[in-house]
Amino acid sequence: MRSQFRFHNLSNKNMSFADVYHHIETFMKQNPQAQYRLMIGTDSQVHRKFTRFVTGIVIRREGHGVWACLKKHEVKRRIEHLHEKVSTETLLTEEVAQLFTAKRKQKLLQIIMPYIDEGSSFTFEGHLDVGKGQRNKTKIYVEEMMARLKVYGMKARVKPDSFVASSYANRYTK
Rank of each mutant, 00 (worst) to 15 (best):
residue 106 Q to G: 09
residue 106 Q to H: 04
residue 107 K to F: 02
residue 107 K to N: 12
residue 107 K to Q: 06
residue 108 L to H: 04
residue 108 L to S: 08
residue 108 L to Q: 03
residue 108 L to G: 03
residue 108 L to I: 03
residue 109 L to S: 01
residue 109 L to N: 04
residue 109 L to T: 08
residue 109 L to G: 07
residue 110 Q to D: 03
residue 110 Q to T: 00
residue 110 Q to K: 06
residue 110 Q to V: 01
residue 111 I to W: 05
residue 111 I to Q: 08
residue 111 I to R: 03
residue 111 I to D: 02
residue 111 I to Y: 04
residue 112 I to K: 00
residue 112 I to L: 13
residue 112 I to F: 00
residue 112 I to C: 03
residue 112 I to S: 12
residue 112 I to Y: 07
residue 112 I to D: 02
residue 113 M to G: 01
residue 113 M to E: 10
residue 113 M to W: 08
residue 114 P to F: 07
residue 114 P to W: 11
residue 114 P to R: 05
residue 114 P to D: 06
residue 114 P to N: 01
residue 114 P to S: 02
residue 115 Y to K: 01
residue 115 Y to V: 07
residue 115 Y to R: 07
residue 116 I to Y: 12
residue 116 I to E: 02
residue 117 D to G: 04
residue 117 D to K: 07
residue 117 D to V: 02
residue 117 D to M: 05
residue 117 D to H: 11
residue 117 D to P: 11
residue 118 E to V: 08
residue 118 E to Q: 09
residue 118 E to I: 01
residue 118 E to N: 10
residue 119 G to Q: 13
residue 119 G to S: 05
residue 119 G to W: 11
residue 119 G to D: 08
residue 119 G to R: 04
residue 119 G to V: 01
residue 119 G to C: 02
residue 120 S to A: 15
residue 120 S to H: 04
residue 121 S to L: 01
residue 121 S to A: 14
residue 121 S to K: 09
residue 121 S to I: 01
residue 121 S to T: 13
residue 122 F to A: 04
residue 122 F to E: 10
residue 122 F to Y: 09
residue 122 F to N: 00
residue 122 F to V: 10
residue 123 T to G: 03
residue 123 T to E: 10
residue 123 T to N: 03
residue 123 T to A: 13
residue 124 F to N: 06
residue 124 F to R: 03
residue 124 F to T: 03
residue 124 F to K: 14
residue 124 F to S: 02
residue 124 F to V: 08
residue 125 E to S: 03
residue 125 E to K: 03
residue 125 E to W: 12
residue 125 E to R: 07
residue 125 E to P: 03
residue 126 G to S: 11
residue 126 G to A: 01
residue 126 G to K: 00
residue 127 H to G: 12
residue 127 H to A: 07
residue 127 H to R: 11
residue 127 H to N: 09
residue 127 H to F: 11
residue 128 L to Q: 04
residue 128 L to A: 06
residue 128 L to W: 04
residue 129 D to A: 10
residue 129 D to N: 12
residue 129 D to K: 13
residue 130 V to T: 15
residue 130 V to Y: 13
residue 131 G to K: 15
residue 131 G to I: 13
residue 131 G to P: 13
residue 131 G to R: 05
residue 131 G to D: 12
residue 132 K to R: 08
residue 132 K to F: 01
residue 132 K to Y: 02
residue 133 G to I: 01
residue 133 G to T: 04
residue 133 G to Q: 08
residue 133 G to E: 14
residue 133 G to D: 09
residue 133 G to A: 12
residue 133 G to P: 04
residue 133 G to K: 11
residue 134 Q to G: 14
residue 135 R to H: 06
residue 135 R to P: 11
residue 135 R to I: 14
residue 135 R to Y: 12
residue 135 R to F: 09
residue 135 R to N: 05
residue 135 R to T: 10
residue 135 R to A: 03
residue 136 N to E: 15
residue 136 N to P: 09
residue 137 K to H: 15
residue 137 K to F: 11
residue 137 K to E: 15
residue 137 K to T: 15
residue 137 K to L: 14
residue 137 K to I: 15
residue 138 T to C: 06
residue 138 T to F: 15
residue 138 T to V: 10
residue 138 T to A: 15
residue 139 K to I: 09
residue 139 K to A: 10
residue 139 K to W: 11
residue 139 K to F: 07
residue 139 K to H: 15
residue 139 K to P: 11
residue 140 I to S: 13
residue 140 I to K: 13
residue 140 I to A: 11
residue 140 I to F: 00
